[in-house]
Design a protein around this nucleic acid. Structure first.
Lengths: 194, 194
DNA sequence: AATAAAATCAACATTGTGTTTAATATCTTT
DNA sequence: AAAGATATTAAACACAATGTTGATTTTATT
């Protein structure tokens, strides 16, 4: 008989704030958003905002934390379905599927005024699951090389996803997923060469 | 007999502003820097700042524009020395050389509080010179694939450079350049597969 | 030395911030 | 359904940074 953990009022308030925030983020970068205009957009009192968040950046941080959880919950089933530690190609496909399932919010996060560092952390979520796979590779490579490799592939992936989302992701995932898989595979091969 | 195009005073003032700005950027993100503290750090009057820039972001934009010119002037000689349209591997090496020549400022631009979009534009500067080279590839690929490929490699490159600069670039360029070249080469190969 | 231009200083209205108070509205519990 | 608890509101507040202005001083240019 434990009721919904939180007061109904705060859930509504937070929902209004978040909706207003993402709406504003479509139009301008975060540094151009004031608490005042956010509250006007959300139709709530400014004091109420300060009851929940210390400032705009705190709001973003909290939103990102919860979004990260959402994303993990969406991604895990995909990853688990393979029945073995996923290969890079599988993770690639799964991340794309995950993006499609959260298209609306991802368009903001990866959009012009999104938080690219957060995008990086989202991607890292997937690649961490490849550690077993990478473990085998790292015998051949120095830790330094692994570190640089990881930075290249992760950021590259973010870049590709951004392009994909911001220039009509509606071409079906086919072409993009296929290319992404090939790119990642080839990058892995680069680790073997010397 | 045309003197230095600008008044000596404004050159000094702008230099002080820029020095203070990069100094502050080492410590905090741009959105945390106020005009007031910037002027205090630079030791100039606040009114003087507004005589040259409209706000902090205008300052950054102007600085980036000029830095872009500097970078082009440094990069071009490297690229021209090959005597033919540069290959991706050559551009990769040249960009690293260029980074080493501007290490101090690049550490800020690519640092924690740098402007990643600007970093992208810097890298694009190099890859544009590969267009002849890429032209041959694009026969094999769709425009859409080229676009996504380009996003992947550019962002990946930025990620690798950031990692490289922020975790002791002093290990000699050898290992990093070598890996970067292999990665880029392999990515190009990914375009040929289907 | 005379003129032009830039930097300074002080003052000002404006705006957003973050906090506080009392009053009101809404939820939860019995 | 009533009582108590808690969230939201509205108004006021001190504070800080913004962006502008005008008079004054300093520094370049010729």
């Amino acid at each position: 008989m434990d009721k919904s953990r939180k007061d109904h009022r705060v859930r509504v308030t937070k929902m209004l704030i978040r909706r207003a925030f993402t709406e504003l983020l479509r139009q301008k970068p975060i540094q151009g958003i004031s608490v005042k205009e956010l509250c006007e957009q959300a139709g709530i009192n400014r004091g109420t905002f300060y009851a929940h968040y210390t400032d705009i950046y705190d709001l973003r941080t909290q939103m990102e934390s919860e979004l990260m959880e959402d994303f993990r919950r969406t991604l895990d089933p995909f990853l688990d379905q393979h029945g073995h530690p996923p290969t890079p190609a599988e993770v690639t496909a799964d991340i794309f599927n995950c993006l499609k399932d959260n298209m609306d919010i991802c368009t903001v996060v990866l959009g012009e005024y999104g938080d690219r560092d957060f995008a990086m952390r989202i991607i890292a979520l997937g690649w961490e699951r490849c550690y077993d796979y990478y473990g085998r590779l790292s015998i051949k490579s120095t830790p330094r090389e692994m570190e640089l490799f990881y930075a290249f592939v992760s950021m590259g992936f973010v870049g590709l996803m951004q392009k994909w989302l911001n220039t009509g992701a509606d071409d079906g995932t086919g072409e993009a997923v296929n290319l992404a898989q090939r790119l990642v595979d080839q990058c892995v091969k680069a680790l073997f060469q010397d």
